[in-house]
Computed example of a mutant assay.
Amino acid sequence: MALTYHSVPEVLVDALPYFDIGYEDTGVRESALALVEEETRRYKPTKNYLEQLGQPNYHSFETEVMKNEFERLSNRLPMDMLSMKRYELPVPPAGKQTDVTAWNECVENSYAQLEHQTTRILNLELMWDYGANTWKIYNSALQTMLEQAQKQLLELRKRVQEINFQRKHEQTQAGHKLNSLEQTWVGLVSKNYEIECAIAELEKDNQNLRKRKEGKRI
């Protein structure tokens, strides 16, 4: 099991996990971790790999309200209390009890409050009449979305399983082919060794014959 590095970022993984054996042998995990540790120690990144993406703008989505709230939180200031002034019906102050304009403003404020309460009552009546059906439609839409998401999940799981089966099949075939090629290589090496041994014997016999021939001449 080895990693062969070509031009970055291409990486050729020379391994057949579905076919290879010996991953659980003693010392294999330690050796792999040692290789990773060594490469990590030698690797010193000096390049910004996200440079082509530009500088991120983390504040582009912030509104003025959000900016003010973030500023309040950073300064550890308390949150403003909910103003109930719009729901109050104040009378004119003591100095304007006889001022008709002040009383008209109070009356107009009461009219606005009354209209607001009337609108709330109307919304409640609409909710009573149509709210249940609206929620049923909403729940039905959620159920449809859930079924679609579940269907997509099943399809993805099926695809992942098919890819794993395909990888296993391809790796098994490659493993058998590698074993066959290895056996052929071993056979050829053995034959070459036998031929070399036979040649050595023939050379030895040839030398002996030459020595005998030279001895007879003498």
Rank of each mutant, 00 (worst) to 15 (best):
V36P: 01
L50D: 15
Q161D: 12
V28K: 05
R86M: 12
Y43G: 01
F70I: 05
N206R: 07
M145N: 07
V186Q: 15
Q166K: 15
E170C: 07
T134K: 11
K85F: 04
Y193F: 03
I195V: 13
V100K: 03
V91K: 13
Y130T: 13
R167Q: 11
V186G: 00
K204R: 14
K151Q: 14
E147Y: 06
N109Q: 13
R212Y: 11
E125W: 07
L89T: 06
K44N: 07
M66Q: 09
C106D: 00
K136R: 14
M84C: 08
Q171H: 06
Q207D: 08
A94D: 13
S60G: 00
E108A: 12
L154P: 00
A174R: 09
L188C: 07
W103T: 00
R159D: 08
P90N: 10
T26N: 09
L202Q: 09
A200W: 05
S180R: 12
K67N: 06
N133L: 14
H169T: 15
L89E: 11
A2D: 13
W135I: 15
N208W: 04
T98W: 02
R217G: 00
R41Y: 02
K168L: 05
P78H: 09
V8K: 08
G22D: 03
L73C: 07
G187Y: 11
R86E: 10
N123V: 01
H169E: 14
E194W: 03
A112S: 12
L50H: 12
K158P: 02
A149H: 05
R217D: 04
K204F: 06
G131H: 05
E182D: 06
D80M: 07
E51Y: 03
P17S: 03
Q173C: 02
Q166E: 14
T118V: 10
T101W: 06
K191R: 11
E170L: 15
G175M: 00
L154T: 07
N164S: 09
R72S: 09
Y87V: 03
G175H: 01
D205M: 07
L153G: 03
E125C: 11
Y138M: 02
Q55A: 10
T98V: 07
G215R: 11
Q52D: 12
E51C: 01
F61A: 15
M127N: 15
T40G: 01
S7Y: 06
K158R: 10
R86S: 13
E201A: 13
Y18V: 02
Q55M: 06
Y193I: 07
M84Q: 08
P9C: 03
R157L: 13
F165G: 02
L124V: 05
P93F: 08
G131E: 05
R72N: 06
Q148P: 01
N75M: 14
Y130A: 08
H116M: 10
R76Q: 14
Y87A: 12
D25Y: 01
M79S: 12
K85N: 08
L89H: 07
P56Q: 04
M84E: 09
E71R: 14
M84N: 10
Y138R: 14
N179Q: 12
I199G: 00
A132F: 11
L16G: 04
Y193C: 02
